[in-house]
Amino acid sequence: MKFIENNSIDPHYNLAFEEYIFKNLDEDIVLLWRNGPSIIVGKNQNTVEEINMDYVKENNINVVRRVTGGGAVYHDLGNLNFSFITKTESNLIDFKTYNVPIIKALEKLGVNCELSGRNDIVIDGKKFSGIAQSVNKGRVLNHGTLLFDSKLDTLSKALNVKRDKIESKGVKSVSSRVTNIKPYVKDDIDVLQFKQVLLKNIFEYFDQPLEIYELSEDDKNNIQKMVDERYGTWEWNYGKSPKFNYSGYNRFAGGCVEARLQVENGIIENCKIYGDFFGKGDIHELEQKINGLRYNESEVIDALSDVTVEDYLGRISKDEFMKCLFN
């Protein structure tokens, strides 16, 4: 087993980095890495169903889709991610085998933790690690989060979603109580020191010397290509979401408005607008201006920049109408 150092904090790059190693190297690899503030959604999830869109935009939180299943997780610089990428002879998902080294390393730091349910690690019943796996051509990727000193308030707000407005077949995240590791560690260390202690203990567990693997320039160029063509695109992070229906309703001084959308591959396929508003224009015209757009607030605003919404909705403004589409 070998270790690859990756000091990037860009989640688009880091997820491409991890997938590239998973699918292109033959070595057994350990990664310990961090992302700047970001939400990482599972490959089968509906992105807009998992995030608090307004909060994410206001706080410049990245949203990136990964190649493994499971639920959405929050990353920041107080969180440490681990990845074990190894050969396997089985196509079965096995969380326990690959996470015992993490538990044993934490025990050496004085942290009494355990695997819980299918894919969590907990302290006193509170989750600090969510784990996901993928198997591909005789290789297994087992990765997870370690909330060491993360901003748990930001985590709860960024993932606080009003799912009653959205109906889809995407895999839903499960809400759970969370905690940081740092209050339970016997020594006063920061997340980077924690990384070094964890790395040492992982290799001791496997009874192997710590060996570094260096990527070639071609490797790095191929990773960047994956960022440019996939991980950095709206189509991957939002457009890959399962088909969903959205219903948004608000009452304003000028009347009530209900917007119902059918969205497929991130594209608004059908928009219907209902309400008791008084507008002189044919509401079907406004619906048609929205059909075919990406389900993206900025794109819809741009598309309606030359449209006087009040012609269709009476005393209901464009800003008010947008609240029916995205809040």
Rank of each mutant, 00 (worst) to 15 (best):
D10A: 01
E217M: 08
W33H: 01
K172Y: 15
I39V: 15
F194W: 00
D28R: 09
I102V: 14
Q262S: 13
K289D: 05
D94G: 01
W33K: 00
E269P: 05
I103V: 14
L141N: 08
H12N: 07
P242E: 01
A105Y: 02
Y231E: 08
A253W: 13
N60P: 05
E299C: 12
I223M: 00
G69D: 05
I189Y: 05
R65Q: 06
S90E: 13
N112I: 14
L155E: 04
L80G: 04
R163Q: 13
K165T: 08
P209A: 07
V67A: 06
K225W: 09
N296H: 12
G110D: 04
N119R: 12
V191I: 03
N59P: 10
S247P: 07
K96C: 10
D26W: 13
G71S: 02
V185F: 08
G275S: 10
F82L: 02
A72V: 04
L106H: 01
S116Y: 10
R34I: 05
K225C: 09
D28Q: 09
G170F: 02
I290C: 11
L25E: 09
N35I: 12
N79W: 01
V174T: 14
N24S: 10
G110K: 11
I223E: 00
N99Q: 02
F321I: 01
N7P: 06
K280Y: 14
G130A: 10
G130T: 08
G281H: 09
D188E: 15
S298H: 12
N201H: 14
I268N: 11
